[in-house]
Simulated assay, not measured.
Amino acid sequence: MKKVLWVMLMIGLMTACQQGNNETSRTVDMYNSSGDMIGTVKLTEGDDGVDFKVKLEGLEPGYHGIHVHEYPKCDQPDFTTAGNHFNPDGNEHGLMHPEGSHLGDLPNIEADAGGLVNAELTLPEATLMEGKKSLLAGEGTSLIIHDKQDDGVSQPGGESGPRVACGLIAKDEKQSSETPTDPTDFNEKQEE
Results as ranks from 00 to 15, higher is better:
1 M>Q: 14
1 M>E: 14
1 M>W: 12
2 K>H: 13
5 L>P: 07
6 W>K: 10
7 V>M: 11
7 V>F: 09
14 M>H: 10
15 T>N: 02
15 T>K: 02
16 A>E: 06
17 C>A: 09
17 C>L: 06
20 G>T: 02
21 N>S: 14
25 S>W: 07
28 V>D: 04
30 M>T: 00
31 Y>M: 12
31 Y>S: 09
33 S>C: 06
38 I>F: 03
39 G>R: 03
40 T>G: 05
42 K>C: 09
43 L>Y: 02
44 T>S: 13
45 E>D: 12
46 G>P: 00
46 G>C: 02
48 D>I: 10
49 G>W: 00
49 G>Y: 00
50 V>M: 02
50 V>P: 02
50 V>L: 04
51 D>R: 05
51 D>I: 14
54 V>R: 00
55 K>F: 00
57 E>S: 10
58 G>Y: 01
59 L>G: 02
59 L>F: 04
60 E>W: 07
61 P>E: 05
61 P>V: 06
62 G>Y: 08
64 H>V: 02
64 H>C: 08
67 H>S: 15
67 H>M: 15
71 Y>I: 03
73 K>S: 11
74 C>D: 00
76 Q>L: 10
77 P>M: 03
77 P>E: 06
79 F>N: 00
80 T>Y: 09
80 T>G: 10
80 T>M: 15
81 T>W: 01
83 G>Y: 06
83 G>F: 11
85 H>K: 06
85 H>P: 01
87 N>R: 03
87 N>H: 08
87 N>L: 05
89 D>K: 09
90 G>A: 09
91 N>M: 14
91 N>K: 14
92 E>R: 06
97 H>M: 10
97 H>A: 15
99 E>M: 14
99 E>D: 14
99 E>Q: 14
100 G>T: 01
105 D>E: 06
107 P>G: 06
108 N>R: 02
110 E>V: 15
113 A>Y: 06
114 G>V: 05
115 G>S: 11
115 G>I: 00
116 L>F: 15
119 A>V: 13
119 A>G: 12
123 L>S: 09
124 P>Y: 00
124 P>K: 01
124 P>T: 13
124 P>F: 04
125 E>K: 04
127 T>Y: 03
131 G>N: 05
133 K>Q: 10
135 L>I: 07
137 A>P: 00
137 A>C: 10
138 G>Y: 05
139 E>I: 02
140 G>S: 07
141 T>V: 03
143 L>M: 07
145 I>C: 07
147 D>A: 15
147 D>W: 12
147 D>E: 15
149 Q>R: 10
150 D>A: 07
152 G>M: 13
153 V>D: 00
153 V>P: 00
154 S>G: 12
154 S>F: 08
154 S>P: 07
157 G>D: 03
157 G>M: 03
160 S>Y: 01
161 G>I: 01
162 P>L: 07
163 R>V: 07
163 R>T: 04
163 R>W: 06
163 R>A: 14
164 V>Q: 04
167 G>L: 10
169 I>Q: 01
169 I>D: 01
171 K>C: 05
175 Q>M: 11
176 S>V: 10
177 S>V: 14
177 S>I: 11
177 S>W: 11
179 T>P: 11
182 D>E: 12
182 D>P: 13
182 D>W: 09
187 N>T: 06
188 E>F: 08
190 Q>N: 14
190 Q>Y: 13
192 E>L: 15
